[in-house]
């Protein structure tokens, strides 16, 4: 069964003034354990598509089913709760909480899930160790490099045990070494733990590592290719 099921999604901005058709009838299914990159030129609609998959934006028409639940009709607060339990986010600009340490940043999502302190600290340490930051637990984001911050962001995304992780251009601000390290780490989690990743990216290095590449052009899926 698909974790993400998108049925004939359309998204139009400014429908009453100057309509901008960001998505024009997109159908897409992503199964558990996939490592998918959504690619396309600027303005192709990949960010809109990711926003809709992440429940941050709603489609003008069409249906989106995550983990068997139609999220198109959820209220704002129910949507926030849904995101908390089901979706892990990795942002291009890392977006860590600057006043919290790496450990606290990873713990934070579990605080929202009301997990007890001991359990969440153990998991946060475990995840930060898995992303290679066991020695940076007490560092604040400003004391970490871009690559390290993005690793913390990945650990945070994984902390809530989501159904899948959405990553928006996760390597856009990273150098080659950091990009390679981050991709290795995410690929390992995908292979070993079966975690589903969906990226939007321009980065050829990410595209090369993706096992499925969905290309969007002018709000439509132009190609959907599985790499081995």
């Amino acid at each position: 069964m698909a974790i993400i099921e998108i049925n004939n999604i359309e998204k139009t901005y400014n429908p009453s003034k100057v309509p901008v058709h960001a998505l024009r009838g997109v159908d897409l299914q992503i199964k558990k354990g996939e490592f998918t990159a959504i690619v396309g030129p600027s303005g192709s609609g990949k960010t809109t598509l990711l926003n809709i998959i992440g429940g941050l934006d709603s489609p003008t028409t069409g249906q989106i089913i995550i983990n068997g639940q139609d999220i198109s009709k959820l209220s704002d607060n129910n949507m926030i709760d849904f995101r908390k339990e089901n979706i892990g986010f990795v942002f291009q600009a890392y977006n860590l909480i600057p006043v919290l340490t790496a450990l606290e940043n990873v713990e934070f999502i579990m605080v929202l899930q009301k997990k007890d302190k001991k359990a969440r600290q153990e998991r946060a340490k475990e995840l930060l160790t898995a992303v290679g930051l066991a020695d940076k637990l007490d560092k604040r984001p400003s004391e970490l490099s871009g690559g390290q911050q993005q690793r913390v962001a990945v650990a945070r995304a994984l902390a809530s045990k989501p159904a899948f992780i959405l990553a928006d251009e996760p390597t856009a601000n990273l150098d080659s070494t950091s990009t390679a390290g981050l991709l290795d780490m995410m690929a390992k989690m995908n292979e070993e733990e079966g975690m589903t990743f969906v990226f939007s990216t321009h980065d050829q290095r990410v595209i090369d590592r993706a096992r499925r590449v969905v290309t969007l052009v002018d709000g439509k899926i132009e190609s959907d290719i599985y790499n081995g």
Binding site: G54, L56, F89, I97, I109, L112
Partner: peptide, 16 residues
């Protein structure tokens, strides 16, 4: 703005 938006994106509800 950006940070508060991120908090709401990752699951911090409006009440919190």
């Amino acid at each position: 703005n950006r940070e508060i938006g991120m908090l709401m994106a990752v699951g911090m509800n409006k009440l919190r």
